[in-house]
């Protein structure tokens, strides 16, 4: 017994020392931490992200979005913060309300978008402010690392729009090849090579009031395309009777699978013919050139090889 007791005793003593050392370091950390943000001690990762946030640089703190009291001191458990009107993480339906406290115009625009429409219909997966701007790491729009920077727009949109699970979550038929088809365009090829003054998603689909291309007020509605493409910095001088609409901007469909995709999405016949034209010419032209190239190069490369072989056999062929 005595043996065990002594062992327990020394164990306890060791633990006491350990606890003392730990609490000492915790105290040091608490006191010495750069402490404008009392949430740091528990939400270290989040706060570190927040330090890259444009709002942090402008003097906002956690409580501006999450509610609660800013009067708490730097005790290790900030009960004060979590009191009062503390809301924690806002639900996806409420994020816009939080942002709209300051960003009134943006929120008003956003509330006309198909994303907000879907959220209101009860599909919280639809994009809200944080999906495009980041949750805690909201960078300035002209920061190259920003999710919503002009050149990062394709990858940001593709997070959801290339994801079949999200796209088929509320109704079948939103195409997941939007980014892939954008990659076929000259815009992407130029962007990828560092020429950033080309159109990305938000330039045509509008950044906040994104609407379906079947909506007559949408910037991508066929009748509105001349105006959209003819923006001052893009292709000015585009006439209103320019025949932009009679073709697919996301190319691949008319190239390869146009008919199939349109049949699947159940678009009405008039719209379909408006987009595809009477005949899927691109498909047949691509096939024609495949055959022509393979034929001509195959034939003549074959001749080159035969020519070479014939020289091995007949040194003087004349």
């Amino acid at each position: 017994m005595l043996f065990i007791g002594m062992n327990l005793c020394s164990l306890l003593r060791k633990r006491c020392v350990l606890i003392l050392i730990i609490s000492f370091f915790v105290l040091i950390t608490i006191v010495s931490a750069d402490d404008d943000l009392p949430c740091y001690h528990c939400h270290t990762k989040v706060v570190n992200e927040f330090r890259n946030n444009i709002h942090y640089h402008k003097g906002f703190t956690c409580t501006d979005c999450h509610g609660g009291s800013t009067q708490s001191n730097t005790t290790s458990i900030s009960i004060g913060v979590m009191s009062g009107d503390f809301i924690g993480g806002p639900t996806r339906n409420n994020i816009t309300n939080t942002c709209s406290n300051c960003h009134v115009q943006e929120a008003t625009d956003y509330k006309q978008s198909i994303h907000w429409e879907e959220i209101e219909k009860g599909h919280p997966e639809a994009a809200t402010c944080t999906d495009c701007h980041g949750i805690h790491e909201i960078r300035a729009i002209n920061d190259p690392k920003s999710l919503s920077n002009h050149q990062n727009s394709p990858t940001t949109c593709a997070k959801c729009h290339s994801n079949p699970e999200i796209m088929s979550a509320w109704y079948y038929g939103i195409k997941t090849d939007r980014f892939d088809t954008y990659k076929e365009s000259f815009h992407w090829k130029a962007l990828k090579s560092g020429y950033v003054v080309v159109a990305t998603c938000a330039d045509c689909h509008n950044n906040h009031d994104t609407k379906s291309h079947t909506d007559p007020t949408s910037s991508t509605y066929p009748d509105n395309l001349p105006q959209t493409c003819g923006k001052a910095n893009c292709h000015p001088g585009t006439k209103f009777d320019a025949k932009i609409a009679a073709g697919l901007i996301h190319d691949k469909e008319s190239l390869h699978t146009g008919r199939l995709v349109f049949n699947k999405t159940g678009m009405d016949v008039q719209m379909k013919s408006y987009y595809l034209g009477p005949f899927d010419l691109a498909y047949w032209i691509a096939i024609f050139f495949k055959i022509l190239t393979a034929g001509v190069i195959g034939l003549f490369a074959g001749m080159v090889i035969l020519d070479f072989l014939s020289r091995l056999r007949i040194y003087r062929r004349w």
Binding site: F186, C229, G230, H235, G237, T238, K239, D241, A242, K243, I244, A245, A246, G247, L248, I249, D251, S254, L255, L276, G277, L281, A282, I285, A286, F289, K290, T293
Partner: peptide, 21 residues
């Protein structure tokens, strides 16, 4: 966009296919 005053966008798109191939 000059071409699009005379031919539809679809044919401009065809031009890219024809040109590169």
């Amino acid at each position: 966009f000059v071409a699009m005053n005379y031919i539809p966008y679809a044919y401009v798109h065809l031009a890219t296919i024809v040109h590169t191939d």
